[in-house]
Computed example of a mutant assay.
Amino acid sequence: MEESTIVEKIVSRELPAAIVYESDAVIAFADHDPINFGHILIAPKKPYKTFLELPAEVFGEINEVAKDLYKRLEAKYSPDGIGFMQNNGTYPDFNALDHYHLHIFPRFKGDKYGWVTSEIGIQTVKSLRESIADL
């Protein structure tokens, strides 16, 4: 039997969490290691691992929750921006929870959260077109 994910343990109340939304299918709670206060994870209650596994109705609810939280984060924190991030891939390297989740978090100038690019560097439009030509 597969071990429960962290999200499933939060849903079953085996682990404590600061929950801001919960329905029959979706839960949203504060990230325990936040980029900034107000950093929330929105996840299905069932342990779908990737974006591709999500049923359309669950994906739709997650996006509706994200819209609502966006407004609530703006009202509470007056951030300079709002960030979204969602990772898929090999556990634990690219999805530490092994459970689909969408991050939403307030952004502030100087918050040190950033994008680190690979060593391929800035590309020409020609090379980018070639790289996606047969997508």
Rank of each mutant, 00 (worst) to 15 (best):
S4L: 07
T5D: 05
T5N: 01
T5Y: 09
V7F: 08
E8A: 06
E8G: 08
K9Q: 14
I10V: 08
I10P: 00
V11G: 06
V11T: 04
S12Q: 11
S12N: 09
E14M: 06
E14F: 02
L15A: 08
L15M: 04
P16V: 00
P16H: 03
A18L: 12
I19W: 01
V20F: 03
E22G: 03
E22R: 01
S23W: 10
S23Y: 13
D24L: 08
D24G: 12
D24Y: 10
A25D: 12
V26G: 01
V26N: 03
I27P: 07
I27F: 09
I27H: 02
A28T: 11
A28H: 09
A28Q: 01
F29M: 03
F29C: 08
F29P: 12
A30G: 02
D31R: 00
D31F: 00
D31Q: 09
P34H: 14
P34T: 00
P34Y: 02
I35V: 14
I35H: 07
G38E: 11
G38M: 10
H39C: 14
L41A: 01
A43Q: 01
A43H: 07
P47R: 14
Y48R: 11
K49H: 12
E53Q: 07
L54Q: 11
P55E: 02
E57S: 07
G60E: 02
G60K: 13
G60N: 15
G60L: 01
G60W: 05
E61L: 13
I62C: 02
I62A: 02
N63D: 10
N63P: 00
E64D: 03
E64W: 04
V65G: 11
A66T: 14
A66Q: 03
K67R: 12
K67Y: 03
D68Y: 08
D68T: 14
Y70K: 07
K71L: 11
R72P: 00
R72K: 08
L73N: 01
A75K: 15
A75C: 08
K76V: 14
K76G: 01
Y77V: 04
P79V: 14
P79A: 02
D80L: 09
G83M: 06
F84N: 11
M85I: 05
N87W: 09
N87Y: 12
N88L: 06
N88G: 01
G89D: 15
G89K: 07
G89V: 01
T90N: 12
Y91A: 10
P92W: 02
P92I: 02
D93T: 06
F94G: 05
N95P: 05
N95L: 06
A96P: 06
A96N: 10
L97H: 15
L97G: 03
L97C: 06
Y100N: 00
Y100M: 15
H101F: 03
I104M: 04
I104N: 11
P106R: 04
R107W: 10
R107C: 05
F108H: 10
K109F: 11
K109R: 04
G110C: 15
K112C: 09
W115P: 00
V116F: 07
V116P: 04
T117Y: 13
E119I: 11
E119V: 13
I120R: 15
G121T: 13
I122D: 08
T124Y: 15
V125T: 08
V125W: 13
S127Y: 04
S127I: 05
L128R: 05
R129E: 05
R129C: 12
E130D: 09
S131A: 09
S131Q: 08
S131C: 07
